[in-house]
């Protein structure tokens, strides 16, 4: 039985939403791991959820990147453990260096909370195998720092290595370079994205375009 673990920081606020989405896809609830833990339980997937870890002090995700559990997450990710970071989780993964670039303040200087069209740019058998390349998803975003920045060399590498997972398809809501909404690391076992698939994984809520992400991972792990 494949297991997922969700990291919980002081200030996380999407941890329960993502737990419900994972439970629905995996058939059983994930393990919830408090940030002060120094070891991960046995798990096949780590999710770093959205929210405002440590109140976004200093920079969004900066403090959380150095919390005890993240040392372990970084070490295990470097050994190949799949890690998914959503919104603040994406910010944290860039701060730890697991993903390149940085998430800067939105170009509009406004917090943006709306549903946007995102294109599946590079499907991955593990994270997004159920989607098709080019598929347009309606996914909610809710962030103040979603403006993806990386230098020209990094952007060229991301494009050349097919590591842009998702791009904003209609409008660019936050000023991110090349409409980037989500990226993979070099080994493709780490995915970070600003949109919230867990908020679009229940028929009673904002559509269900996010559900296949969790179903893809459950399916890949069940094999």
């Amino acid at each position: 039985m494949s297991k997922a673990a969700v990291i919980v920081f002081p200030g996380s606020n999407c941890d329960r939403d993502v737990a419900i989405a994972l439970e629905s896809a995996f058939g059983h609830p994930p393990l919830m791991v408090w940030h002060a833990e120094t070891a991960l339980p046995q798990t096949d997937l780590v999710v770093v959820p959205g929210g405002f870890s440590y109140g976004d002090y200093l920079r969004a995700g900066a403090m959380a990147g150095f919390s005890p559990i993240m040392n372990e997450v970084v070490a295990r990710a470097r050994d190949g453990l799949p890690v998914l970071g959503i919104c603040n989780g994406f910010q944290i993964l860039t701060e730890t260096g697991l993903l390149p670039g940085a998430l800067m303040r939105n170009a509009s200087l406004k917090f943006i909370c709306r549903t946007v069209a995102c294109r599946v740019e590079a499907r991955d058998p593990f994270f997004s195998g159920i989607y098709t390349n080019g598929q347009i998803l309606q996914l909610p975003i809710a962030h103040n720092e979603g403006n993806y920045f990386a230098d020209d060399e990094t952007i060229a590498r991301l494009n050349g290595e097919d590591r842009v997972a998702f791009r904003y398809a209609d409008i660019n809501p936050n000023g991110s370079r090349e409409n980037i909404a989500g990226i993979y690391n070099e080994a493709r076992n780490v995915l970070g994205l600003m949109p919230h698939p867990e908020r679009a994984a229940d028929t009673n809520l904002e559509g269900t375009d996010g559900a296949p992400l969790f179903e893809s991972m459950a399916r890949a792990l069940a094999k």
Binding site: L58, A62, F66, T94, A102, M104, F149
Partner: peptide
Amino acid sequence: ETLLTNTVI
């Protein structure tokens, strides 16, 4: 280099 700045930006 470790915490106070993000040297990417």
